[in-house]
Design a protein around this nucleic acid. Structure first.
Lengths: 245, 245
DNA sequence: TGGCATTTGTACGTATGTATC
DNA sequence: AGATACATACGTACAAATGCC
């Protein structure tokens, strides 16, 4: 019959109103909010309340305020930074390596399929460049190699033209690499590892070049499985098998 | 040689430290933070600074503080609510229906494959129950039908045992349904629509029953495409085709 | 049960460094 | 270069709410 009453703080209502104005498009990116002093008169609350609201909006990437700027806080618009942060946090704090790898295989499997068929020539060139960089970095050690690897995967994700694919791929790849970073650092033969990765990437890029989505997807999933399954505890390996052909 | 200096606010360093303690597990859910006054002495900053930090943490779902609680702010731990919120915001504010459908086909295509092979008998029973509910709700109107539909999809997502699959599916499905809600409400023959959905769900559930992941995946993607592609502007339909067999 | 101590929510004032015109 | 307006940060104060005895 009756619903529990949740007290709504003053700063929350300030956040609500400003956030809505930004999401609805009434406040375009680049626009300026009134100064904190103006906001306190407009909302009829104290400066602290306004500041708490602005901090929340800022942590969500919606606005940015700099000291001394007479034009007031800047509207940044809706960005992916907060999504990135919260997904990162959830992944690191609550997900097993198996769960993450499963999601990465699921995501990249389809992303590579899409990328193979939707890519432009410019995007293909970016991937080629990243692969060349990887090849060149084999002798420069693993960290340089890994940076080029990230560039490659990012180019593929961006070729899908799908914002959620880009963000999810980026986050999940980052967390997975972090979780096994120490084991990679102590690998017996880093060079052999890099050469294996290089072969995988070369094959999948050929499939993307050929616009063969099904092959690109299969290669991507298989490569992920082959590269990382050995780092998994025995009982988590079964989660990955259903995603292989 | 030198990198640009980004000013780090006092409250950000407070957020960093507390957030890290929560994500690393040093602060378990249910634990209590020191009172604001204690925090200001421990961090050596003013109370406003502490409060701004707490607001940010609270908006990220990591802590909750209630007025008058002598035990101090409560640690909630890392949950998916913030991920849910930020993904929702990004999807609604910046993504086209085509982009969302593309992601949904990508995600559910693999999710159904996983669910078919990893589901337990209990999870299968949940899906059966949800489908029965849908069947019964055909005569109760679209909103009741849709609620049962959500239950079905959620049961499938949870059967994957993958937190990111659950959250992403939930968000994307919600936004897609919202975007076409008005067009569904004015559909000429809602009953025929519901019967079509019902047939799709019956087929895909049979595939899950048979543990035929490939078939479940293909049926799920095809059903999404058949159900929603007509709501897309012409130029966005090409984005979906690469995800069909 | 009621009262007390403590905590949070909010408001206001002030000093300081900074960006813009 | 100076004036102005701004955000940052600190401190104090008081009301409302909570938990505990």
């Amino acid at each position: 019959m009756f619903k529990p009453v949740i007290p709504v703080r003053a700063y929350e209502r300030v956040v609500e109103q400003i956030e809505q104005a930004i999401v609805e498009g009434d406040l375009q990116p680049g626009a300026r909010l009134p100064s904190e002093r103006d906001l306190m008169t407009q909302f009829g609350v104290s400066r602290s309340t306004i500041r708490e609201a602005l901090r929340v909006l800022q942590s969500n990437g919606l606005v940015r305020s700099r000291p001394g700027d007479p034009r007031g806080p800047e509207v940044l618009g809706v960005s992916a930074v907060n999504l990135h942060n919260s997904m990162n946090r959830l992944a690191r704090a609550t997900m097993s390596l198996g769960e993450l790898l499963q999601f990465r295989m699921l995501l990249e499997g389809s992303a590579y399929r899409l990328a193979a068929l939707l890519r432009s020539e410019e995007e293909l060139a970016e991937m080629e460049a990243a692969l060349a960089e990887m090849r060149a970095a084999v002798d420069d050690g693993y960290s340089a190699f890994s940076a080029a690897d990230v560039t490659f995967h990012d180019a593929v994700a961006r070729a899908t033209q799908n914002k959620l694919v880009v963000v999810c791929s980026d986050v999940v790849r980052g967390v997975v690499l972090d979780l096994i970073a120490d084991r990679l650092a102590h690998a017996d033969d880093q060079r052999a590892l890099m050469l294996t990765y290089l072969r995988h990437h070369t094959e999948v890029l050929q499939a993307i070049r050929d616009q063969d989505g099904v092959r690109a997807s299969r290669l991507a999933r298989q490569a992920l499985h082959d590269s990382y399954a050995s780092y998994l505890p025995e009982e988590q390996r079964a989660m990955l098998a259903p995603l292989l052909d």
